[in-house]
Each structure stands twice: as structure tokens, then as C-alpha cells.
């Protein structure tokens, strides 16, 4: 996994609440069997008209935000379907950080596994960032995971919290399957006390 320490980049505001993963990546793009190449389908139905032409009024197509790597949105971002494709499409499109006042659990988990940082700030802080992003040309934020801060160069400054272990993994780009496998003794001990039930062996064809 790509480690995350600090990132400075331009900000695009997506002023909507409850942005669900069906919007982030519509189902017709879930049929790929790879992890890559989802960026072009990000927010597809919001970005493109039915005939495939770009909708110029959607924030991601606003030339002011064309270089954005930080997305700021309303509460409950990433709700709905568990599809990790949503995170892959955001990351593939070039986003490194999503800022919102609340995230759906599964989305936040999926983000962690892919080095995409989700930063939870208060509603007034999110509103302030959106206001600044809408009114300042090339509005930039610096997000520092070591110091747990979000800052711009016009005096905005906020701190956020994050689970220590999740932060440790992100900072170091750790593969958590590898970490879990370090507990092999404990896993094997658990399994010897809790064997698979005999009925289940009948589930395999040919047994």
C-alpha cells in the first residue's frame, strides 16, 4: 500500500450530503476484474450526460478545480454499497484525501486499505473549506497525518483524530494481511479449539 504522510494539493468542493457509493461509481462499471482503471468512471452519472458528453456544471469539470487532489463533501460520505471500486475510482482519478463531517464505516475502512486518507472535520469547518475553495483560485490545503492537521496559507487550521493503529499503517504503508499473519500462533490455537463443523465438509462437490 502507498504510504501517506503529508499531502498538499488543490481542493474541489462537492457540496452534497449522503454521497453514496452508487454515485461514486455506478454499477455498470463494477464488472471489471482488475483493481485499476476505474478513475474515468468516477461520479459517472453526475459527470456525463446520457449521450456521453461532459456536464460542465459538475464541480469536477470546472476548470478551476481540474488539478484537485483533495475532495471536500458533506456528511455521511460513502454510504451505501460496500463496493471498494468507489475508493479505487477516487484514488485512480488522483484524489489523495477526502474531507467530510462524517464517513460511512465500510467506505472509511476501504479507504484505509488503499492509502486514501479520510479526514473527519466538524460541519462548520467543512463549510468554511467549501466556502474558501469556491472563492479562492487554486485553493490549496496541506494535510499532515503525522501532526493530524489540516491547514491552508490563509490562516485556516484544524486538527483531526484517527485511530492510532490505522494511522500507523497508513504512515508506513503496511500490508495488514502480513500483520495479521504474524499472529499465526494465536490463530492456529483458536482454530484448534473451534474446528470446522462436520456438516460443512459435505458442501464440497465430490465428497
Amino acid at each position: 500500500m502507498q504510504p501517506f504522510r503529508k499531502h498538499t494539493g488543490e481542493v474541489v468542493p462537492l457540496d452534497r450530503v449522503n454521497v453514496d457509493t452508487d454515485q461514486i461509481i455506478p454499477k455498470q462499471f463494477l464488472k471489471r476484474i482488475e483493481r485499476t482503471g476505474f478513475g474515468e468512471f468516477l461520479f459517472y452519472d453526475w459527470r456525463f450526460a446520457a449521450d456521453g458528453t461532459e456536464k460542465s456544471d459538475f464541480a469536477l469539470h470546472d476548470p478551476r478545480y481540474s488539478k484537485a487532489t483533495i475532495l471536500v463533501a458533506g456528511k455521511n460520505f460513502g454510504c451505501g454499497s460496500s463496493r471498494e471500486h468507489a475508493v479505487w475510482s477516487l484514488a485512480d482519478y488522483g484524489f489523495r484525501v477526502i474531507i467530510a463531517s462524517a464517513f460511512a464505516d465500510i467506505f472509511a475502512n476501504n479507504s484505509l486499505k488503499n492509502g486514501l486518507l479520510t479526514v473527519t472535520l466538524t460541519e462548520p469547518q467543512v463549510a468554511e473549506i467549501m466556502r474558501r475553495a469556491a472563492h479562492t483560485a487554486s485553493y490549496r490545503l496541506s494535510v499532515d497525518l503525522e501532526k493530524l492537521t489540516v491547514e491552508d496559507d490563509q490562516g485556516f487550521s484544524a486538527t483531526f483524530t484517527m485511530d492510532d493503529f490505522a494511522r500507523h499503517c497508513l504512515l508506513n504503508g503496511l500490508d495488514d494481511i502480513g500483520l495479521t499473519l504474524k499472529h499465526e500462533t494465536a490463530i492456529a490455537a483458536y482454530e484448534s479449539k473451534h474446528p470446522v463443523r462436520p456438516e460443512m465438509s459435505a458442501i464440497l462437490p465430490g465428497r
Binding site: 486499505k113 494481511i177 495479521t180
Partner: peptide, 22 residues
């Protein structure tokens, strides 16, 4: 509970999941 694809891989490989207690 529902999980993402990285966690699917995690469970396939280890039959365990690191979870923050809800």
C-alpha cells in the same frame, strides 16, 4: 457485516479481520 474487497482478501488469507470494536 459487509466488508470491502481488500478485507475479502484478508479473510480469505487469514480467516480473521482486525476490527475496531463498534
Amino acid at each position: 457485516f459487509g466488508i470491502g474487497t481488500s478485507e475479502v482478501e484478508h479473510v480469505l488469507a487469514t480467516q480473521c479481520l482486525p476490527q475496531k470494536k463498534p
